[in-house]
Structure formats: C-alpha cells, structure tokens
C-alpha cells in the first residue's frame, strides 16, 4: 500500500444511465471494490443499512478476467436475491486468480421495513470497467438492468 492509497476511503456510488442504473465500488483492493459494488447493488433496491445480517450465503464464481468475473459476481448475487427473496447488507469478498469466494450477509425482504424500490434484472457489460487508478485505488463498475 503506497502513501496515496492509505487515504482512500472505500465507498460505493451510483452513476446515471438513462433507463437503468450504474453501480460503482471503490476500494484499496480489488476485493474491496467488488464488496463496495455489492453494497451499491443493494442500494438500488433499498438502504443497505436497513438490512440485517441474519443469514450468510456463500458465493463462488470463476472467470477468465476480472471484468467478466465482476459481472458474474453481481449476477450470482442477483440470482441469490431473487431465488431466496433476500437483500444483502454486506458481502465479504476474497479474490484470487480471477476467482471470487464471498459470503453475503443479509435477510429476507421485509416490504414494510425495506420499502424495496425496484428489483434488479441482471448486470450488463455496459460501462463495465474494473481496474486500478493511478493513485492506487481500485474501481469496479457496470450498468445493471432494473
């Protein structure tokens, strides 16, 4: 970690897309950028802070590069959200040689408490970018279809 990266605060954000929504994770490491992007994914649906970490769901995906891996990672989360009717407040991510091993922490959708705005259909290759910036921090982003 160089002196510049020491000052980076991991964060997530949404960026505009006319019909859908862009999600971006920023972190000191690639894994942290993925984890932040996962939080941005939840934030499309609800405030991640309203979601309790009641259950742990393991996620594992493998791909040929970190960009395809990122889309696969998000789609694996979307699949678990859809089939388990869950939202995730936090995802612990480890990445090694284009393989993600993650634990997603969350609970079942509670409509009254979460006020879910919209469901996510899938992650796309639009505005897809995963990489390290000059100051050393990592970005992982793409547009998701809602």
């Amino acid at each position: 970690m160089n002196s510049a990266t020491q000052h980076i605060v991991a964060r997530w954000e949404h960026f505009p897309h006319q019909a859908d929504m862009g999600i971006r994770g920023v972190g000191v490491t690639l894994a942290e950028a993925y984890a932040m992007a996962a939080r941005a994914l939840t934030a499309i649906v609800t405030d991640p802070d309203t979601v309790l970490p009641r259950y742990e769901i393991p996620i594992e995906v493998h791909e040929v590069d970190d960009e395809l891996l990122f889309v696969d990672f998000l789609n694996a989360l979307i699949y678990e959200m859809a089939t388990r009717n869950m939202l995730f407040t936090r995802v612990d991510v480890a990445i090694n040689q284009h393989r993600v091993r993650a634990i997603a922490h969350g609970e079942n959708v509670d409509v009254a408490r979460h006020q879910p705005a919209v469901e996510v259909k899938g992650a796309t290759y639009t505005e897809l970018h995963v990489g390290q910036c000059e100051d050393g921090h990592w970005i992982a982003q793409c547009v998701v279809d809602v």
């Binding site: 395809l68 889309v71 696969d72 789609n75 979307i78 699949y79 859809a82 089939t83 259909k121 899938g122 992650a123 796309t124 290759y125 639009t126 897809l128 279809d145």
Partner: peptide
C-alpha cells in the same frame, strides 16, 4: 425472473463465442 436469467446467461455465452464466429463486437453488450 425466467426471462432475466435467460438474458443474463446468453449475453455471456454470445459475448464469449463472438470471436469464434469471426464477429467483432464494437460493444460487448
């Protein structure tokens, strides 16, 4: 959800197979 998952899976299959078919994609999407 069925349609969303079909779209997700075939988007990737087609993106990966494009070069095998000699197709240059200006945008992976």
């Amino acid at each position: 959800g069925l349609g969303h998952q079909i779209g997700t899976e075939f988007l990737k299959k087609m993106a990966l197979a494009a070069s095998e078919h000699g197709i240059t994609l200006p945008d992976r999407e």
